[in-house]
C-alpha cells in the first residue's frame, strides 16, 4: 500500500487512542519504503509511554527522532527543549506525534505560524478508538476532535480508525468497529485514511497492518 504522505503528518487524538503506536508504525513503514523520515515527539503531557521510547527502533530504520531531553527522566516539566523548527525544516517526511486531548494539542499552536507556510503540504490525522471509554460513540470522538482543533489551531484532514482493546485485540474486535468508523466519517465529513490492524487478518477498509511497539515491561 502506498502511504502517500505529505511533507508533514500531524497526529492527534484523545489520549490512549494509540497515537504513538500508530506514529511509530507509520514512520517505520515510510522509512522502509525509502523515505527519509523525522519523528517529532511533541508530547508534553505523558510522563511515560511515548515516541521517545522508540529510540532504538527508529535508529535501526534510519529514522531521526526529535524528543524533549527531559522525556522519561525525573524532571516533571512540560518543556520542549529542542529546536523544533530545525527538525521541522528537515528534508523528507516529518511525522509529528502530538500529546493527547486539547491540553496536549496546545503545544502545537506554538508552531502554527511556521507550519502555515506549508498548509498545502500538511495532513492532520485524527486517531480514534471505539474502545476508549470517553470516545465510544462517533459523537464523543468528534467532540474531542473539535477541542483539539480549537486548542492547536490546526485543522484535521483525515482520520485513522485505531479501535483496539490492547492485548485483547482480535480481528473480530477490529472488524466490529467498522460501523463506528463509518459513522464518524459521515458525521465529520473526513475521509478514513486507515484502519489499523494488529491482528494481521482483519477484514476492514484501508487496512494498515501494524506491529505493537508500545509494550509493557513484562511483555518484553
Amino acid at each position: 500500500m502506498s502511504l502517500n504522505l505529505k511533507k508533514y503528518t500531524i497526529i492527534t487524538g484523545h489520549y490512549g487512542s494509540g497515537k504513538t503506536n500508530f506514529a511509530a508504525n507509520l514512520a517505520v513503514k515510510a522509512a522502509k519504503s525509502g523515505e527519509k523520515v523525522t519523528v517529532v515527539d511533541l508530547d508534553i503531557v505523558n510522563p511515560y509511554f511515548r515516541s521517545a521510547d522508540f529510540g532504538k527502533l527508529f535508529e535501526q530504520n534510519g529514522i531521526s527522532l526529535a524528543a524533549p531531553i527531559y522525556a522519561n527522566t525525573n524532571l516533571d516539566i512540560p518543556a520542549l527543549s529542542f529546536n523544533i523548527e530545525e527538525f521541522l525544516s528537515a528534508d523528507g517526511k516529518v511525522i509529528i506525534d502530538v500529546g493527547g486531548d486539547d491540553s496536549g494539542a496546545s503545544a502545537l499552536a506554538r508552531y502554527k505560524q511556521f507550519l502555515s507556510a506549508y498548509s498545502d503540504d500538511i495532513e492532520g490525522i485524527y486517531v480514534i478508538n471505539m474502545y476508549r471509554y470517553l470516545t465510544g460513540t462517533a459523537e464523543d470522538a468528534l467532540e474531542f476532535m473539535r477541542e483539539i482543533e480549537a486548542a492547536s489551531g490546526m485543522v484535521v484532514s483525515s482520520f485513522v480508525n485505531n479501535s483496539n482493546l490492547g492485548e485483547e485485540t482480535t480481528a473480530e474486535v477490529i472488524e466490529k468497529s467498522s460501523a463506528y468508523a463509518d459513522e464518524f466519517c459521515s458525521l465529520s465529513g473526513l475521509p478514513l485514511r486507515f484502519t489499523v490492524d494488529t491482528s494481521g487478518k482483519a477484514a476492514v477498509k484501508n487496512r494498515f497492518e501494524a506491529e505493537i511497539y508500545v509494550k509493557k515491561i513484562w511483555e518484553n
Binding site: G16, Y131, R132, Y133, G136, L165
Partner: peptide
C-alpha cells in the same frame, strides 16, 4: 462491555 482504560482514569471512573 469492554473498554480500554488508563489506570488512573479507571480509578476515577470506578
Amino acid at each position: 462491555e469492554r473498554n480500554l482504560m488508563k489506570g488512573n482514569e479507571a480509578l476515577a471512573e470506578a
